[in-house]
Amino acid sequence: MKPFGLAEPASLKDAIAMIGDADSGVRPIAGGSALMLMMKPGILQPETLVSLRGIEPRYSSIETAGDGGLFIGAMTTLRRMELSADVARHAPVVTQALRRLSNVRVRNIATLGGHLAHGDPHLDLPPVLIALRAKVHIAGRDGERQIDVEDLFRSYLETSLDSGELITGVTVPAQGNRKSAYIKHTTRSADDWPALGLAVSFSLDGDVLRDVRAAIGAATDIPQRLKSVETALEGKRAADALQGAGDAAAAEAQVHSDARGSAAYKRELIRVFTGRVIRKAMESAAGGTI
């Protein structure tokens, strides 16, 4: 690995001031787990890394709003999120997804901000956060903005962050009685990055599904909503709509053959796991269980 400089600003403002333009050779570093995988083989050779570890503690905290909404700072480690009682109470599907995200050594250092900013489709939380209608908080030289998590991802390893912008946190709106579930499926080894991630979230009106959100990760170029699944389920009883939802998902998702499986096989997996993730959500207690 090429040697690099390390800056350790004490505030978000200073960090933003340091990162500058995309091609300046300066790069923010949070946990470093994704960065190091790219720097070791020389795919990425930054001159300077700006560590976000020293910025204000607010950005590594988890706050709960009165209605059950959550704010999770960008520098919160995945392990802190996994162990947080607030996350488990208000968004248990997140806690559950985290338990099978890589291994504890990675979760101990990887952060939520790095996880999202990395832009790799093979990550577990993006589809979950999309299904929960979470928003990303972004700060730059020109101030702050918020976008839906689904609008963060542009293309493979590319996000809609402008150069000089940092993720400061994520808000997960109050889930009320909504039911949610996530299924991670790996095809190479159990602790691999997912070959397919499917998340779903909905309210139940009697036994009819309402306000459905479905999202896919890993099998597609970017994590994204599966709108045809949402349509197939909206206003239906789950039992009547599972088959149609699976078929819709398999038809909508643009998948490619790669080391984790052929496109044809992935479509079969999407079909099967769409049904399973909906059933899993149905079986979860209101708001989900862990």
Partner: peptide
């Protein structure tokens, strides 16, 4: 995996050895 004459997965990220859950 060799594709087009190139070894495509010479790393532990892509050459998967069993982990504890396997």
């Amino acid at each position: 995996v060799i594709e087009n004459g190139q070894l495509t997965n010479p790393s532990l990220a892509d050459y998967r050895i069993p982990g504890i859950f396997d």
